[in-house]
Design a protein around this nucleic acid. Structure first.
Length: 470
RNA sequence: GGCGCCGUCGCCAAGCGGUAAGGCAGAGGUCUGCAAAACCUCGAUCCCCGGUUCAAAUCCGGGCGGCGCCUCCA
């Protein structure tokens, strides 16, 4: 598949270096608060990438997504809550797992926490390696990376190093640095803050070292195949990760950098101060399904800003409904012989779907291929030209597509737990059918309206009545 | 001040030089006891102005508008 590589600023043909297993790292959540849907846009896009690599292109995947559970914000939050750091961050990791499940994120191979001892040790070891190669200095008990010792610094973000700012704010970190661009690897212990010592002196890790060290500890020798994250991380976080990993190993760190653009809300950046951050539970409380959120988050190209509005969420809901209604309808087809031309049409759609994914993960175009097939097959059903064997071919195609999209199955799971017990719905449908048979339509309509009031919609067709959630 | 992205039908959104995908919403029709679903029909020349080309939404130049990064941030 072709992927846009931030490092080269162009699309390149991607394959794992060993032609078998994609080794990828994604920057996860800093667990000082519940992740919002902007965070989850990145995670959903990375999930779709992961699934595409596995299910559409047949590679194995070893993905690492971390939890940053020690930094200024987590420490401040824990202190304010009067909880130990670990206990404080635990609750947000749990929340992440709940939301990830709700959004159908596949679990990844490794979810390291920065404060796990193995990881802290790996960070300390990397700092020691940097020290030996002359990339560090100490100041007030903290250890810094000396950018001037690494000539290639800045290659990812392509930031002009000479003319840094006039209008931009300078690093407000209140540690002492030799050069404003230098960044901290290991922060000296401050009163009341958690502290560790694995051979580099007491203190805690800087933000950037966490990812470099965990990526290489869990994925092995650099370069790794893919490193993913939100665009805001390009500088300084990813730039510094490169500096650390390459400074410590002398080898290239990452082959492909995959960056997801931001989610906006009402055309504005999401931020706490604007009060426009939403979490998955926030949206659920307003009656929106997580499946619709997932659909919305992956309906646009990952490298383009996506503007979140409730109107677009409703549209996502309806679009998804069309897919699930279609699959339900497929299930009612019975009898007949296979039509080769239908198999060919399905094959055409499957190819278009895969080609779209191969084109830098063009999910919008991939969905269009599916909707084209929906219309073609619906027409065939209307014309009585679709057999049960045909329907099987079609539904298999959708099942394969949904391995990558992960949204139809999610929706179907949500449908499986209706607000009214399924047995009661079935009884009411039977009662309504009896009423219809005796042409007591007012009673039939009453039952239908009663169920609608309780969130269940009925649809009559030649093959019987089906129900679905509103 | 520097770097970069974006501007396509009412809304969302593909398009990467060859004559505008798809979805939602809407209108009319078919089907239906009614409804729903489904199908059919109906919609844009692509922010503006120049230029290059046989041919531009797609390339170049200039505007206008929106956004991001340069600072913690997905």
């Amino acid at each position: 598949m072709r992927l846009y590589n931030t490092l080269t600023r162009q699309q390149e043909e991607f394959a794992p270096a060993d032609a078998r297993t994609v080794r990828m790292y994604a920057c996860g959540l800093t667990v000082y608060a519940r992740g919002h849907i902007g965070n989850f846009r990145t995670f959903v896009c990375v999930d779709v990438l992961r699934r595409a690599l596995k299910y559409a292109f047949g590679w194995q995947v070893h993905e690492v997504m971390n939890f940053t559970d020690v930094d200024d914000r987590t420490i401040a939050g824990a202190e304010k809550a009067g909880q130990p750091l670990r206990e404080y961050t635990d609750q947000f990791i749990e929340a992440y797992r709940d939301d990830a499940r709700a959004l159908g994120l596949e679990s990844v191979e490794d979810n390291p926490r920065a404060t796990d001892e193995d990881n802290l040790r790996a960070m300390a070891d990397m700092i020691k390696a940097l020290d030996q190669r002359g990339h560090t200095y100490r100041s007030d008990g903290s250890i810094y990376f000396k950018i001037s010792t690494l000539p290639g610094y800045g290659g990812l973000s392509r930031i002009d190093q000479s003319g840094i700012m006039a209008g931009a704010r300078v690093d407000s970190d209140n540690y002492t640095k030799e050069d404003a661009r230098d960044f901290v690897l290991w922060k000296a212990t401050k009163p009341g803050e958690p502290t560790w010592d694995f051979g580099t002196g007491p203190g805690r890790p800087g933000w950037h070292i966490e990812c470099s060290a965990m990526a290489l500890r869990l994925l092995g020798q650099p370069p790794i195949d893919i490193h993913a994250g939100g665009v805001d991380l390009i500088f300084p976080h990813h730039e510094n990760e490169i500096a650390q990993a390459e400074g410590a190993t002398g080898k290239p760190f990452v082959r492909f950098w995959f960056h997801v653009e931001h989610l906006l809300v009402d055309d504005q950046k999401m931020s706490k101060s604007l009060g426009n951050t939403y979490t998955v539970p926030d949206l659920a409380a307003r009656g929106y399904r997580p499946s619709a959120v997932r659909y919305l988050l992956m309906s646009g190209h990952y490298r383009k800003q996506l503007n979140f509005t409730f109107a677009s969420l409703v549209q996502a809901e309806e679009s998804l409904r069309r897919l699930t209604d279609f699959l339900a309808r497929l299930g009612t087809v019975s009898g007949g012989d296979a039509h080769p031309e239908m198999a060919a049409r399905v094959e055409e759609a499957a190819t278009a779907f895969k080609n779209a994914l191969a084109d830098d993960l063009n999910t919008a175009a991939a969905l269009a291929a599916l909707f084209d097939l929906v219309r073609a097959v619906n027409s065939a059903i209307d014309a009585g030209d679709l057999s049960a064997p045909d329907a099987k071919v079609v539904s298999d195609c959708f099942a394969r597509a949904d391995q990558v999209l992960g949204v139809i199955g999610l929706r179907q799971q949500e449908e499986a737990t209706p607000p009214v017990p399924a047995s009661e719905i079935e009884e009411l449908i039977d009662a309504r059918q009896a009423a219809r048979r005796r042409r007591d339509f007012s009673e039939a309509d009453r039952i239908r309206q009663d169920l609608a009031g309780r969130g269940i919609l009925l649809e009559d067709s030649a093959s019987g009545t089906r129900w679905k959630r509103k």
